[in-house]
Design a binder for these strands. Structure first.
Lengths: 114, 114
DNA sequence: CCTTTATTTCGTTATTTGGCGAAATATAAA
DNA sequence: TTTATATTTCGCCAAATAACGAAATAAAGG
């Protein structure tokens, strides 16, 4: 039950849902997500660690960047079953749509460290 | 997004997950659930109202009793998709199994108002 | 080596949440 | 109508959570 609870707790926050929906588009680094959500980078980092602890996302170190992506090949069935559900949810949510547009436009070399 | 968040928040508590797993067996009244979870009835009532607000359960008034059951015919797809997932999760969880045994044995006329 | 950039960790604060008991409500039974 | 039972609402407290900024860590580039 511990694992399931961790997953639902991770999913029960608006910012983290937004992050997951953004990651459906493509992998993102912390500062790209920070730019979209308009939160402190420490806050975004914390959200990502909660998603990672729940096995919903994985992180990939690439030089000074850490790329986060959906854990689409998780060992746990919970993740394999819930991520596809979320992927088909909220297609018309205004916040999610606006975030998606921002993700399309964002370039990490432009926005990070400005 | 509000509706989805409500659902995930409702699911992100251990006692509420236990309640949902118990309701998979059969509809239950507040005092039966109170007996299994060993919480104050006011606390159980609050948990049930959160599950009801999320549309995960429905309540049926029957005299002095209020029977709660899974909302298996919800209008929202979120509910229709997530309840079956939860139904197949945690089949071997010790707490869930112990709760299930208690539900089998419980008789509202015996335990309520003792 | 030193500086810059990206990220994480830590400490603090405000808000939310889960728990209880007492009081209020509703219904059944006497 | 009075009493008993089931449930909900309310007010309170303790614990958990989301947010921030500052400090620590890690890697790139001069």
């Amino acid at each position: 039950m511990r694992a399931v609870l961790k997953i639902f707790k991770a999913l029960s926050d608006g910012q983290r849902l937004r992050i997951l929906k953004m990651l459906e588009i493509r992998p993102l680094c912390v500062c790209e997500i920070t730019d979209v959500l308009q939160l402190a980078s420490s806050t975004v980092s914390k959200h990502l660690s909660i998603l990672r602890e729940a096995d919903l996302v994985i992180d990939d170190k690439d030089g000074k960047w850490v790329n986060y992506s959906l854990n689409t090949s998780a060992r746990e069935q919970y993740i394999n079953q819930i991520l596809p559900l979320i992927a088909q949810w909220l297609p018309d949510d205004t916040t999610v749509l606006r975030d998606a547009e921002k993700v399309q436009a964002v370039d990490r070399n432009m926005i990070c460290g400005v």
